[in-house]
Design a protein around this nucleic acid. Structure first.
Lengths: 143, 143
DNA sequence: CAGCATTCTGTCGATATTGTCCACGACAAG
DNA sequence: CTTGTCGTGGACAATATCGACAGAATGCTG
């Protein structure tokens, strides 16, 4: 995990369609060596996968919200139940004003309400507090 | 934006290294037609870019936190100032208990404190409330 | 510390796969 | 009929992928 690996990761985060020849030139290695390093980064799980960044609004996901979930029991094991709700993008166990924090995306307020109804059906949930996003300033990948 | 486009997006979200030949077979089109559809999805901005999903902990980003930022002025224009802080992954203007919500990742508690100090230097910021993530249940891309 | 084996990391070139482009046909709408 | 959209299939260039080999780093042993 040296500096060259970090450069490669940065370059691929910007644009994963870059050729190994370009990557190699950018970091001062041959195409083969760059390929080998990236292969190992994948193998080690540092690079989880190659994916695309999609404009959610273009897919009809107009409303983004964060939901603070209160529970009367340990909720670290409710991951599967929450993952079963397709609109939930992230779920974290938190230290603070609630037990779990969700990031959700729905097509509208009505669907957000439906989603909250589903959250309440998860065992142990006693309440929710929803923070609606008015405008996203940016969402990016860290270098 | 028909069903085939949505299938293509789903397939590429799972694994953007798939060949156009495979994509075409999966949706019942030729390789050329699949290529053309994906090209147009990029052109229209539905697909923003091709990128890699990186294990942040492997890069030394051990602490994830959400920061609620209070301000005494309209903060919709502070995006650039917040984007200048490299540890800030997302910034949203919200309706609710604060003005702005940040998602941040740092290597440790000390660096989180340094980050909060930087947030306070942004014009109009009057206070922050930080929610630390104890465990991430999942972070995924929506279909 | 020298000598030696082992492992890791790199270069280079061959080859198969893939992306990319173009000419053409089918089809629906005006 | 004309026009525009969307598909097919094939040709070509670019690229990924793999193997053989060389050098540096590492670690063990006497």
């Amino acid at each position: 995990m040296d500096n060259i690996d970090r450069m490669l990761i940065g370059l691929l985060q910007d644009d994963a369609t870059r050729s190994y020849a370009m990557l190699g030139k950018a970091v001062g290695l041959s195409s083969g060596a760059a390929h080998e390093r990236v292969r190992k980064l994948r193998e080690r799980g540092v690079i989880r996968r190659t994916t695309i960044d999609v404009d959610q609004e273009a897919l009809g996901r107009a409303v983004t919200a964060y939901v603070l979930v209160d529970g009367n029991t340990w909720m670290g094991d409710s991951g599967d139940r929450l993952a079963a709700i397709p609109e939930v993008e992230e779920a974290h166990v938190i230290a603070g004003p609630a037990s779990v924090l969700l990031k959700v995306r729905t097509s509208g307020p009505k669907e957000l309400q439906d989603l909250l109804r589903q959250v309440f059906q998860v065992d142990g949930v006693t309440g929710t507090q929803t923070v609606v996003v008015l405008q996203t300033l940016f969402e990016r990948t860290l270098k």
